[in-house]
């Protein structure tokens, strides 16, 4: 596989030739190299490790890939991020108030950037990402992120280490 070959395969898009026109929940209307596509869904191939990469899909068809969507013009970027925030909705844990075992599961009471929440997990629920961030997956399959476990207060850290 040679470098130039790859780029053709991937349909890499030049951010200067991409404009996001409108954002609706999980869809955008986007203009790519002069052509307008409606009902386009952006997807992140690496939601945790390279969140800046975005691939545009219309139904099953791949329209192209942005290596770094943050290089779009400010208006487009803002619109795209609005959609990404919905597709990749993920509360950030700010504080853990308590973890206790309840009916074979663990009950977590936490404060997130989206507000306080109580959720239940199985015992193996924490995933450590390469960069040190943590993901907590609850019994319903929802995921909560701990951006910087070291920066949490000591009590929260104690609860986390208990569950790891």
């Amino acid at each position: 596989m040679h470098a130039d070959n790859i780029l053709r395969e991937l349909k890499m898009l030049d951010p200067r030739h991409v404009r996001v026109l409108e954002a609706r929940l999980d869809e955008v209307d986007v203009e790519i190299e002069g052509r307008v596509y409606c009902g386009v869904r952006p997807r992140r191939p690496f939601p945790y490790s390279y969140p800046e990469i975005v691939i545009f899909y219309r139904d099953e068809e791949e329209l192209g890939m942005l290596r770094d969507y943050r290089k779009l013009d400010p208006r487009s970027r803002e619109l795209l991020e609005r959609v990404l925030r919905i597709i990749y909705f993920m509360p950030r844990v700010k504080k853990i108030l308590g973890v206790r075992s309840a009916k074979g599961k663990y009950e977590w009471r936490v404060v997130t950037d989206k507000g306080p929440v109580t959720f239940y997990t199985w015992s193996r629920c924490i995933r450590l990402l390469r960069d040190g961030r943590l993901l907590i997956r609850d019994a319903d399959g929802r995921v909560y992120m701990v951006e910087d476990p070291e920066k949490l207060d000591s009590k929260s850290r104690l609860y986390l280490s208990m569950m790891m």
């Binding site: 596989m1 790859i6 395969e9 991937l10 191939p45 690496f46 490790s49 990469i53 290596r67």
Partner: peptide, 10 residues
């Protein structure tokens, strides 16, 4: 990451 995607496509 581009190469990973390209290999997966292939």
């Amino acid at each position: 990451p581009e190469e990973v995607i390209a290999a997966a496509k292939a």
